[in-house]
Amino acid sequence: MDWFLSAGDDPVHKLLLMVIAIALFVVVMALILFVVDRRRNPSKWFIAGGFVGPALILLTLGLLLPAGGTIVNSFQNRNGSEFIGLDNYIRAFSEPAFLLVLGNTALWVLVAPLLATFIGLVYAVVVDRSRFEKFAKALVFLPMAISMVGASIIWRFVYEFKPASVEQTGLLNQLVVWLGGEPVQFLLERPGNTFLLMVVLIWIQTGFSMTLLSASIRAIPTDIVEAARLDGLSGFGMFWRITIPSIRPALVVVLTTIAMTTLKVFDIVRTMTAGRYGTSVVANEFYEQSFRQNNAGLGAALAVLLFVIVIPVIIYNVRQMRLAEEVR
């Protein structure tokens, strides 16, 4: 039995296990479908159960029940042995260290989606139908394939600091020195460091906003553009009075989608500073409390908080989706 569970550090064994896992899964699914197919005069429920059942079981076991468990946990003490009411939440909203974390998260959610959307929009407009459009878009698009860990390392190297007496190896500090300044320990200085971490997320997400907004700019009916041109609009006026209003629904969707990603940002903070120097956010603090400080109660409260903050964003998103559909 142990052989099927753990492969130790043997790579061949690992690969074998992987093949076995996939084969096992295929056999189970084939069995389910076989039974569904063979039954004579099956009821609708029986067939539906065969198709939808596995997903519903996994969703219940993997999302619904654990989420309920975490909500209960959030009212308990650090090892779940007794109920302590709202204490975890009160702590999260009163201790200065956690207030900083909440403040940082708010800053992330307000700034990063706006900048990523704005830059993506501007870039989409300026490279639209230029000679190098495809290539230019690919350049901004590529970071989407890079993990947040990889992107964080790329940017940490840009922010690298060396004392003024030696040559700089980080690009940003070299620029500072070239402009006649003193090198700065960028990642240590509050509150600038939080913004420098945001740069990484913006850098990744701009490709997303560019792609969606570029497509919706192209979907603007030409007669509207033509009519506006006859009215003497061009350049910036056209952009502001025609383009922006026409793609408003897409803009909202892009903003809220990036906001939801931003809210849960963990990898970047973990890799860049591990939450030190006043850069921690809720998702990072959740990890810290749950798995480092072993305070399951407080960790659960932070996770619930993440969930609660995301709800208004989603409601707004769904509303805008509905509006957008009516417009179409």
Binding site: V52, A55, L56, L59, G62, L63, L64, L65, P66, A67, G69, T70, I71, N73, M260, L263, K264, A283, F286, S290, A296, G299, A300, L302, A303, V304, L306, F307, V310, I311, I314
Partner: peptide, 20 residues
């Protein structure tokens, strides 16, 4: 059921990790 599955998209995975 489908709406319920759709709605589950908003559950942040963080909220499931400790019990899982």
């Amino acid at each position: 059921l489908f709406v319920a599955v759709f709605a589950l998209q908003i559950v942040p995975i963080q909220i499931t990790l400790i019990p899982l």
